[in-house]
Design a binder for these strands. Structure first.
Lengths: 110, 110
DNA sequence: TTTTATTATCGTATATTTGCGATATAAGAT
DNA sequence: ATCTTATATCGCAAATATACGATAATAAAA
């Protein structure tokens, strides 16, 4: 690969791709579900629910955090993760607008 | 890594993740845009627009095709790609339903 | 202070992705 | 039949992602 080409695309395209990437693993989608279902900012409970080791879950949480989909604070032996609704909404609408833009043209051939 | 854990998640989670993965690279999002803008099933024009080699674009097209987001036929030295609206709509609504499910709980802590 | 419990990080192995040049393929043009 | 043109595929190199065990870090409990 050598050279990264990603940065040669639109910022919006990159952002959208980064968001999609954060959701591109079933474990991370499952984590988001758990975070939403429990009306509390859990963390260790996620490990119990998922078929993954603690370190792996922690890694997925980190990625979700970096992507901005969740926010989290670690307070010693206790953590607090929750969904970052703001960013989530933003990306959701971005996705929808992409779909709308695509749909509006409605090209159809094959 | 050795062992794949992806298949231990819900089918729906896997499908959604696969869809997100298809969109997880700016080049593929750009390709979808081009396919929609041009009111014709192009292909070589994509190569001109993107900052990537022909073989790389072809590979991205293949991935989009495998993911079911586009359908395409190759007719000798000419190809015909276009967006698979059906699958696109399906995944879009799946995404929205995920967001809705998450939003409905509206947990908020940190 | 030492222990305990929880989470993060490091190191590592393997798998997958990304990207390109070179080559194959396939249909139309000459 | 040969050339041309557009696409796909192969083979490879480098980067990233996935997963885990081991270890560090941190704050509360004993």
């Amino acid at each position: 690969m050598a050279i990264h080409k990603k940065e040669e695309f639109t910022q919006k395209e990159q952002d959208l791709a980064a968001f999609a990437k954060a959701l591109s693993h079933p474990a991370r989608i499952a984590i988001l579900k758990v975070l939403a279902q429990k009306n509390e900012c859990i963390c260790g409970e996620i490990v119990e629910v998922l078929p993954l080791a603690q370190s792996t879950v922690s890694q997925h949480l980190k990625e979700l955090k970096i992507a901005g989909l969740i926010s989290g604070e670690t307070d010693g032996p206790r953590s607090c993760y929750c969904i970052n609704w703001k960013a989530f909404e933003k990306f959701n609408s971005d996705f929808n607008s992409l779909f709308e833009k695509l749909k509006s043209v409605n090209a159809k051939c094959c």
